[in-house]
Computed example of a mutant assay.
Amino acid sequence: MILVTGATGTVGSAVVHRLAADLPVRIMARDPVRVAGAATTAEIVRGDFSETESLRCALRGVDVAFLVTNSLAHDDTRFIRAAQSAGVRRVVKLSAAAVADSCADDLITRWQRRNEDLLRGSGMEWTLLRPRSFMSNVLSWAGSIRAENVVRALYGTSANACVDPRDIAEVAVRTLTEEGHEGRTHTLTGPEAITAVEQTAQLAELLGRPLRFEELCPEQARVAWGRHYPPAVVEALLESAERQRDGTKAQVGTEVFRLLGRSAGAFRGWASDHLSAFATP
């Protein structure tokens, strides 16, 4: 039995779409009615990382689990203990590329490191997926593009080897359904390092209308992010952006090609497939 968590999120939902109908799959979600695209053979259950009993029920009979957590309020201790008790053999965890950066010491990266350490010390087999930033993060620009033909971002000429979430999902499915990934860490990037200015230009070309890029200063970014995130997370995002400005996120890897036998998807392809999100109503 394969358990998928985070099934309503960016990567987890794509994993659900890609798991074959003939596989025994259980999908855990806090709100099961939000799960979309699952095979009719999949079992969908309610579960919450803060509720031990719901985790025990979701993990019963599970052999391999896909672990996606995003709440900084608690670490993965409760899930890992429940998985150990249930006899789970292996956990595939979605982490982040920043964990390997010795200069990264922000709140979010420290939380990811802590969770990785918990899994490696659990006695279960483990596989770590460490993606660079998701290409889908640019969906946060959709409102200003639709309304004003404007993109506003911090450090617009800094490059990031961002990755298509669909590639992450495809790698996740491979690691969940194939042997040989035990004790392995896969760092996942796109095929090129691209800047926000370049992404804006590609979106403008695909949309067939001019877009303007407006550079935010750090204080403007702090205010903008503060509308959506608590102060500690905002400071972590600012630290992350500064590392990107310094070039630490521009390295392109080959893991996607090695694991999938094809090149990683480029930003232009992702944008073409999601162009309706930016189109003028």
Rank of each mutant, 00 (worst) to 15 (best):
R262P: 00
R262F: 02
R258N: 08
F49H: 15
V62Q: 02
A250F: 05
A169Q: 07
N70G: 15
D101V: 15
S13C: 09
V197F: 08
S136P: 12
T109S: 06
V16S: 02
W225L: 14
V173F: 03
A221T: 04
H186D: 05
V25N: 01
E116Y: 07
F213G: 02
V4Y: 03
A271F: 08
A172C: 10
G156H: 14
R30E: 04
G123D: 10
Q199D: 10
A86C: 08
H17E: 12
V234H: 04
V99E: 01
H228G: 12
A271S: 09
R132S: 10
G265Q: 05
L67S: 01
A58F: 07
E179Y: 11
G9S: 05
A153C: 10
L59R: 06
H186F: 09
A21T: 05
R146K: 06
V256D: 00
A100V: 12
Q112G: 00
A241R: 10
A29N: 14
T185C: 14
P281H: 10
S133H: 09
T5H: 01
E219P: 00
E179M: 10
E125T: 01
G6P: 09
G180L: 13
A279Q: 13
C103N: 10
T280H: 07
G47V: 04
A39E: 02
V171S: 08
L188D: 01
L275C: 11
R130S: 10
A232V: 14
A58E: 01
D31N: 12
V151W: 00
R26C: 04
A38E: 03
T127P: 04
A42T: 12
P231V: 09
G269A: 14
G180E: 13
R262I: 13
L154G: 01
A271L: 10
E255I: 12
P210W: 07
D246L: 11
F66S: 01
A14L: 13
A169P: 02
P281D: 10
L118W: 03
E235I: 05
H228V: 13
R152G: 04
E170T: 06
A58L: 09
A42E: 05
L176A: 15
I44M: 08
L176I: 07
R30M: 06
E43G: 11
S140D: 09
A73Q: 11
E53N: 10
R120C: 13
H181L: 04
G261P: 07
V256W: 01
E125Y: 06
V88F: 04
E43K: 14
G47Y: 08
L259M: 06
E179W: 10
V15A: 11
T200D: 08
T77R: 07
A65Q: 00
L207N: 05
L237K: 05
R152Y: 13
G47K: 03
G183T: 08
L259C: 07
A83V: 00
G156C: 09
R268G: 00
A221R: 08
A96L: 11
I27R: 02
V256Y: 09
E125C: 01
A159S: 14
R132F: 11
R89F: 11
I168A: 02
F134A: 05
E239D: 13
L176H: 02
L23W: 08
D246R: 05
E215P: 03
D75N: 13
G247H: 12
F134K: 06
L129F: 06
